[in-house]
Amino acid sequence: MDYGAMLEYLPLYAHAALLTLRIGWIGIAGSIVIGLVSALVTSFRVPILHRIVRVYVELFRNTPLLIQLFFIYFGLPRLGLPVDAELCGCLGLALLGGAYMAETFRSGLEAVETGQTESALSLGMSRRQVMHHIVLPQAIALSIQSFVANVIFLLKETSVFSAISLLDLMFVAKDLIGLYYDTTECLVMLVLFYLMIIVPVSIAGTILERRLRYGAFGA
Rank of each mutant, 00 (worst) to 15 (best):
D2R: 11
A5H: 10
M6G: 01
L7Q: 12
L7G: 13
Y9D: 10
L10A: 12
A17F: 10
L18Q: 13
G24D: 02
G35M: 02
G35T: 04
L36F: 14
S43C: 06
F44M: 05
V46D: 12
R54F: 02
V55W: 13
E58C: 03
F60E: 02
T63F: 09
P64L: 00
L66P: 08
Q68P: 07
Y73H: 11
G75E: 06
G75H: 11
G75C: 11
L79W: 13
L87Q: 10
C90E: 15
L91M: 14
G92A: 06
L96Q: 08
G97S: 10
G97D: 05
M101G: 02
M101W: 05
F105S: 11
G108M: 10
L109H: 05
L109A: 02
A111W: 01
Q116D: 01
Q116H: 07
Q116N: 06
E118S: 06
A120T: 10
A120W: 04
A120G: 03
S122P: 00
G124C: 09
M125P: 06
Q129K: 13
M131A: 11
V135D: 00
L136H: 05
A139Q: 03
I140K: 08
A141T: 07
A141L: 02
L142M: 11
S146G: 15
V148R: 05
I152H: 05
F153Y: 14
L155M: 15
E157H: 07
E157V: 05
S159D: 09
F161Q: 00
S162R: 04
A163C: 12
A163G: 08
A163F: 15
I164N: 08
L167S: 13
V172P: 07
K174H: 02
D175H: 04
Y180I: 00
D182Q: 15
L187R: 08
M189Y: 14
Y194C: 05
L195E: 04
I198C: 15
I198M: 10
P200R: 03
I203Q: 11
G205R: 10
T206A: 15
L208I: 02
R210I: 07
R211E: 12
R211P: 07
L212R: 03
